[in-house]
Design a protein around this nucleic acid. Structure first.
Length: 574
RNA sequence: CGGAGUGUGGCGCAGCCUGGUAGCGCACCUGCUUUGGGAGCAGGGGGUCGAAGGUUCAAAUCCUUUCACUCCGACCA
């Protein structure tokens, strides 16, 4: 491919709205051009990278038995009603909805569990057809509350989504493991440094799930991991061994103490000279379900924090937010800072973190402005709450297996695999006839890869102050042959010759034959980030060209005959 | 949705406070010179200043409304 004919358009200055290095560089290199918030046109170079990633994805998913299909982007509302997700996705505000001319509701597919489950139900009748793993690579639509960072969080993005159908849990486990293997190979081949972590299943639902995180400072997710044990999890999901709490003794008599203006845990520590671990804070949330909303009270040990994802799961609610001050005052009859379990309205659901189970003599608020209670005991002074793990794990705490401390890193979620089980197949009555002659719901898994996000996360991981440094496997071209001065016949001839030779070697090469001055050409090629550059310039007179490795800047001047070999050697290192 | 901010040729910005009819750099076009690290000189084209309404003799500038975009929080590949 000749760059003079490829509509390569670069910018000399950063676009004002690009925040992340990867977003900046992709915009400046003309890889992406914004059409609207979260909507981008992929330029010709970007599209080549997308095709390379999708080719890798296709190969590896196919190698594990995946079968490619293409589903509609537009889905009828009834399909989403049948799984019960229409309400949740509308409540979350991420569904793009539209009406046809008859007024019927549709949405643009944010994911395809409903469509594929319906398809499976229509086409799979017997256990003899199982297992099946169907996938597609297609644009997805999500009306993100805040699109940002270019392709990192777009409203339309390219996703590989796969769905496995098995007859039983063991089959699902095998399908899931196969996808796990495929994912590892895919991200390794794409040249990104990643880590797989245990994850919360979120709105997709199901039992087990694992996320693939490209490690980067700019990542939107925090992950905790332990090198000693290999444990790794998204903070949303992470567990840990909490710090020991001091012994709490036999239940003593409850005692109310005036604590004027003492509201926070820190203030209480000072006031009572007690460690925070001896206290229980009571936090009020407003939870929303499809049919109702209600305040709930959550007790957490004073030195620990609430993980709202875990809480959402424990409540099985759609959304969760901290209760507003006026609602707290109305419920407890006290100002904010004095809520507690004692004497709390009995209609309020009361949850507590597992670290509080069996703890005696707690210091808590008592729903009276200016007072706290000591020696509060569950079951005696207030009804036993429902205990759940609601605690946010933190770096520095022990890994749940106790083998070592947790470390924190940030990651970009580029892949996610889920064990769905029969959640969708049961809800949508999608079944097959089993070996015993009786109908059974499919046991499903679903698997996603953010293809466009993967491309940008590679850039986020691999760039320098000059521009992008593409991993060779997903670079728009592996090699650029630069003709320094296109008016010099010998340079043009040399460039053409090397271009042809490299092509003959099966290398994905482009020829930079643009009528651009040398300086601008070099700057552009560095910005665009091709892994290896061959320069046909002033050395051509003696039959020499330069070969440069973009990543390190390493450069050799060699006779043209040896250029191919050096290119190959550099590509090995790229 | 809550909070903060920005909309001026393709891109990056100034002008706005203190109204007087639009300017700079890059990019683009023409010519000459230059030619391996984003060339120089000369000439040239392109913007109803996000939109609507209002105030005024006069609005990019002041007022109102609205839309879009960005950033900080909750969602996700």
């Amino acid at each position: 491919m000749r760059l003079s004919k490829l509509h390569v358009v670069t910018l000399r200055e950063d676009p004002a709205d690009a925040e992340l290095p990867s977003h900046r560089l992709l915009a400046r290199g003309g890889y992406i051009v914004k059409a609207a918030s979260g909507l981008y046109t992929y330029g010709p170079l970007m599209w080549r990278t997308m095709k390379k990633i999708t080719a890798i994805v296709n190969e590896e998913i196919t190698a594990e038995g995946g079968i490619e299909v293409m589903m509609p982007i537009m889905h009828p509302r009834e399909l989403w009603e049948s799984s019960g997700r229409w309400d949740r996705y509308v409540a979350d505000g991420i569904l793009f909805t539209l009406k046809d001319s008859k007024g019927a509701d549709f949405c643009l597919g944010p994911t395809h569990e409903e469509v594929i489950t319906s398809y499976a139900d229509q086409t799979i009748t017997s256990y003899k057809q199982l297992p099946v793993n169907l996938y597609q690579i297609q644009d997805k639509f999500r009306d993100e509350i805040r699109p940002r960072y270019g392709l990192m969080r777009g409203r339309e993005f390219i996703m590989m989504d796969a769905y496995s159908f098995d007859a039983d849990q063991a089959g699902l486990d095998a399908s899931y493991a196969a996808m796990d293997r495929a994912y590892r190979r895919i991200f390794n081949r794409c040249g990104v440094s990643f880590r797989s972590v245990q994850a919360d299943a979120g709105a997709i639902g199901g039992s087990g799930s694992e996320e693939f995180m490209v490690i980067a400072e700019a990542g939107e997710d925090a992950i905790l991991y332990c090198d000693e044990s290999g444990y790794a999890a998204n903070v949303e999901k992470a567990e840990s061994v909490p710090a020991e709490a001091p012994p709490c003794g036999d239940a003593g008599e409850m005692e109310k103490t005036a604590t004027p203006d003492v509201r926070t845990v820190e203030q209480l520590e000072a006031f009572f000279d007690l460690p925070a671990a001896a206290m229980a804070k009571t936090v009020l949330y407003k939870a929303t379900w499809a049919e109702e909303e209600a305040l709930v009270a959550v007790m957490m040990r004073g030195d620990l924090s609430i993980n709202e994802v875990k809480l959402t799961n424990a409540l099985d609610c759609l959304t969760l937010e901290l209760a507003e001050d006026h609602a707290i005052v109305k419920l407890t009859g006290a100002e904010v800072g004095f809520a507690g379990p004692v004497g709390l309205n009995e209609k309020i659901r009361l949850l507590a973190d597992k670290t509080l189970e069996g703890r005696t003599n707690l210091l808590t608020g008592c729903n009276e402005t200016g007072f706290h209670c000591q020696n509060v005991n569950a079951g005696r002074d207030f009804p036993e709450p429902a205990y759940h793990d609601l605690r946010e794990a933190k770096a520095g705490e022990l890994s749940p297996d106790g083998k070592g401390p947790l470390l924190e890193a940030r990651g970009i979620e580029v892949g996610h695999i889920f064990k769905l089980g029969d959640k969708y197949s049961t809800a949508m009555k999608a079944s097959f006839i089993g070996e015993n002659g009786k109908p059974a719901p499919f046991v499903m898994g679903c698997y996603g890869i953010g293809v466009s996000r993967t491309a940008q996360s590679a850039v986020e991981q691999r760039h320098d102050d000059k521009g992008i440094i593409w991993p060779a496997a997903i670079a728009p071209f592996e090699v650029a042959v630069a003709i320094v001065d296109v008016r010099k016949e010998d340079q043009v001839a040399m460039g053409e010759r090397l271009y042809a030779e490299l092509q003959a070697e099966g290398i994905d090469v482009c020829l930079d034959d643009r009528k651009v001055r040398a300086g601008a050409k070099f700057k552009d090629l560095e910005l665009l980030g091709f892994p290896v550059q061959v320069t046909a310039g002033r050395g051509v007179g003696e039959g020499k060209v330069e070969v440069t490795l973009r990543a390190s800047g390493e450069r050799v001047e060699v006779m043209a005959e040896e250029a191919c070999a050096h290119v190959q050697a550099f590509l090995e290192k790229a």
